[in-house]
Write a protein that binds this DNA or RNA. Structure first.
Lengths: 336, 336
DNA sequence: CTGAAAGCGCTTACAG
DNA sequence: CTGAAAGCGCTTACAG
């Protein structure tokens, strides 16, 4: 490993001068700068980031909070996986690397971030948990963004879920449906999406003078197919007069498809269905699932921009909403 | 941030003694060790990893090579996403953190790994590329594992793809199929899986005295649905007398489903199909896709074990094969 | 414009 | 069993 001392010796300048030349800091004769840079190149110099971090407290590392406990999808989530991937691209382009933050060894997320001297943190998927876990990040003033759920004091980039819920309900209504069920994801987690989608759903009903029927609301115990299968089963045993169901996420819709297959229900003839997320499977299932595509690329782009802004000391908004695109496929039947 | 000097002052011992106590190194009076640990705890001491890395050259960081350029799935790959997730869990349990390695800024993967002083590297998905890119890792002696493809000199944990190809062909044959097509993934990449699966496929044909028909072999231009759609179309325009197709990966099978839907072909009545990977969509499509499940958890477990072994200076095998499980669903028709 | 000095927080021989 | 000294590779005031 070649160090700045090696370059200093070779060029005849001092280590601080080499440092300034390589970093473009301080005032330097442009000739000596050129020379140093050239020699450094020839020698194949690579800075030692640990040394730099130790003296500057800047690591060029961004901590990622991504933990799918309770979701059991690993990195296969249709929204989060894309957000992670694109955020990584953008932030690497700006010279930062991504390191995963965890809660192991009695370290909290915050302690872990300190241990690694990260320059900022992105909350993509904190699993279920307690929002107060993030208070230390807020108090510390560390640059931080969330692409998952609203936190007071954390710049959050998130889909307009309420609008999504509204559009879904409105679509059903315009296709002639009146008895529309709502299959919710668990509302006890850290994500506010289920509530927001429900709020929009109710608002549309109200606007179209359709009363919200509590009996047509059902909540899955988990964010998965199995939970949805059971929840929908409960709903269907209770009531058979509804013609449509809005699922707060595609994963839940998959449970409905499974139930329909086992129970001999025809989709969308017997029940129309709309999901949320545009999972890769949607366009493969029969009928192809009508859904919403969250703008993961835009969410990630804005997240990285907001991260960089904060690192630069610039102010950022509390919340940025991104539109989710309605994708009409084949799972909603028109009722005359 | 409290440092070992703060603890030294408070306890009356020197910094080196504190260091030894906290790390459990050297010979220390167990009383002073206890005391130091207790005070450190009370003071909420967290080691500064940059300082430690600088003096020990050990970062407790493992570099991850994961780049899906050309695949365009982000982290949504049915095998890689699970491998990444489980490997992360295991390696974090051993006290290591994961950082993504990239090829930005004229840095090669290897240079990036030096820059971050990683203790080891896992190659999960290097995108298409040149195997020689990894020569530096091998020469350097850095601990390294691959869960993607075979590299001489890198401990690789990978499915028994040849066996998979064999079992697929044999299954078709036992169901009465004789004219069996093979839809391959691109073979120009770094992954050896397509060739291995093809080799097993051919072997089964030979064992059952069925000649391999070159005209029934077709290669997709990309690892995606669209490429498969086009490739299968070419095949189908050329020959209509085959009754089954083995797709080297589920993604390719999706392209066949799409083609079948557009062309009005019935699955599995007109064409039987087997995929590979057990993508989450498989059990949702009609007909549910018969496929193979790679043992991603086992692959990741072994990968982390092999990584840890290398870090500990222990020898590791060149290659570990894991069985892929055959999952029979509904996409293969029995021919009388 | 350039460099000597000190410091970031830790660990590793080496003395005592 | 414990500590003084030096070093890991870099940067930041501060002098000149």
């Amino acid at each position: 490993m070649v160090t700045i001392y090696d370059i200093a010796k070779k060029t005849g300048f001092s280590a601080p001068t080499v440092s300034k030349a390589l970093n473009g800091t301080g005032t330097l004769n442009s000739g000596t700068r050129q020379k140093i840079i050239q020699i450094a190149d020839e020698m194949g110099y690579k800075p030692n980031i640990s040394a730099r971090t130790l003296s500057t407290r800047k690591s060029n590392l961004i901590g990622v909070i991504y933990d799918d406990t309770g979701m059991n999808r690993g990195f296969a989530h249709p929204l989060f996986s894309v957000v992670l991937n694109r955020f990584r691209e953008q932030i690497e382009f700006a010279g930062y690397d991504l390191v995963f933050l965890s809660r192991h060894f009695q370290m909290s997320y915050y302690e872990h971030s300190q241990y690694r001297s990260v320059d900022g943190v992105i909350i993509i998927n904190p699993a279920t948990g307690d929002k107060s876990e993030f208070d230390e990040f807020i108090e510390s003033g560390m640059p931080r963004v969330s692409t998952n759920s609203l936190f007071d004091g954390i710049c959050t980039i998130i889909s307009d879920n309420e609008k999504g819920g509204y559009v879904a309900a409105e679509h059903f209504i315009k296709k002639g449906h009146k008895k529309i069920a709502f299959l919710s994801a668990p509302r006890n987690g850290i994500s506010t999406a289920p509530q927001e989608r429900l709020a929009g759903f109710k608002k549309a009903l109200t606007d179209y003078n359709i009363p919200f029927d509590e009996e047509l609301f059902v909540e899955s115990r988990f964010w998965d197919k199995q939970g949805a299968y059971e929840a929908f089963g409960k709903l269907y045993e209770r009531r058979k007069d509804f013609t449509a169901v809005f699922c707060a996420t595609d994963l839940l819709a998959f449970g409905v498809y499974e139930y329909a297959e086992k129970a001999g229900l025809k989709l969308p003839e017997d029940i129309s269905i709309i999901g949320f997320d545009d999972d890769a499977a949607d366009a493969l299932m029969s009928p192809h699932l009508t859904t919403f595509r969250q703008d993961a690329l835009r969410i990630a782009d804005i997240a990285s921009e907001m991260m960089l802004n904060q690192i630069a000391g610039l102010p950022v908004p509390d919340i940025v909403r991104c539109e989710a695109e309605f994708i009409e496929r084949q799972s909603v039947k028109e009722i005359k």
